[in-house]
């Protein structure tokens, strides 16, 4: 504690406390309604089971599809489903449009905690709750029912853990940029629908991106969306002695950097718009 205080200026400590407070408040809000959490856990487990069985049937009919054997394919589908909910690969979940509509945005802007930081801290709190309450139960069911494989090496496990952080940042960056469009369009449902579709499809949550043929697949694999599900699963499933973990992480990090940079820039434009036009 004292070391930290000495090593950083006091401002950094206060900053950290702010992040923790916002994330914790967001986490508490996400567990406040027990019935809601229970319903979500149940539906998520159900989806995991259904998709797991489906993958099993498909890969038994066509072993080696997309370069995975049956057990790896089921692992991909089961854990991918867990990642999809945790990192909101289906888009949305950042309610800037709602705040713009009901006028609460003024309060958000007036807060002495940066606008972008506010939403990112909230998102970290939400993702933490979702990881524990949605991903872990679904993963456990996957292990019990389908014998999900474990990472082949320590490097793969560690790389997977790091890639989860980047997955969250990339997912946040995309959804935040989409949410900010609410400052310019009266009805953000349109942009939300487009982003939701694109994210879900190209994240790897619907189908592994490795299955996409030809140029379509090439393009799909360089888009940022793959960083949310496909890349973490690639790292997780990497065979022992396999290489390229650093490269995969670099791919995620680069997109996270670009998206967060763009988010900062667009935030400034959006807030300027609030100031000059009164929201």
């Amino acid at each position: 504690m004292t070391v930290a205080a000495a090593a950083h200026p006091p401002g950094a400590l206060a900053e950290l406390r702010g992040w923790v407070a916002v994330a914790a408040a967001s986490a508490r809000a996400n567990v406040a309604y027990r019935a809601t959490v229970a319903a979500s856990v149940l539906s998520n487990v159900t989806l995991t089971v259904l998709r797991g069985y489906l993958a099993l049937a498909v890969w038994e009919a066509q072993p080696g599809l997309a370069g995975y054997d049956t057990r790896r394919a089921v692992t991909f589908v089961v854990l991918g489903q867990a990642l999809m909910t945790t990192f909101a690969a289906f888009g949305g979940m950042i309610d800037v449009p709602g705040r713009v509509e009901n006028g609460g945005i003024v309060i958000d802007v007036a807060r002495p905690f940066g606008f972008l930081r506010w939403w990112l801290a909230r998102e970290i709190g939400r993702a933490a709750v979702f990881l524990v309450s949605r991903a872990v139960p679904a993963g456990a069911v996957g292990v019990a029912l389908f014998g999900v494989v474990l990472p082949a090496s320590g490097a793969a496990a560690a790389g997977f853990a790091v890639s989860l952080v980047f997955a969250l940042l990339v997912s946040f960056g995309i959804r935040y940029l989409v949410a900010l469009t609410a400052f310019w369009v009266t009805d953000a449902r349109g942009t939300l629908a487009v982003s939701s579709l694109t994210m879900t499809f190209f994240s790897g949550a619907v189908l592994p991106l490795t299955i996409f043929p030809g140029a379509f697949g090439e393009v799909a694999r360089v888009l940022p969306f793959g960083a949310i599900v496909q890349v973490p699963m690639d790292i997780y499933l990497r065979p022992a002695g396999g290489t390229g973990i650093g490269q995969a992480l670099a791919f995620q990090a680069a997109w996270a950097l670009v998206l967060l940079g763009a988010s900062g820039l667009l935030t400034r434009l959006a807030l300027r718009r609030v100031v000059t036009q009164g929201g």
Binding site: Y33, A35, T36, A38, A39, S40, L42, S43, N44
Partner: peptide, 8 residues
């Protein structure tokens, strides 16, 4: 559970 929209 009015917040369970996503689960529903």
């Amino acid at each position: 559970a009015p917040d369970a929209t996503v689960a529903v």
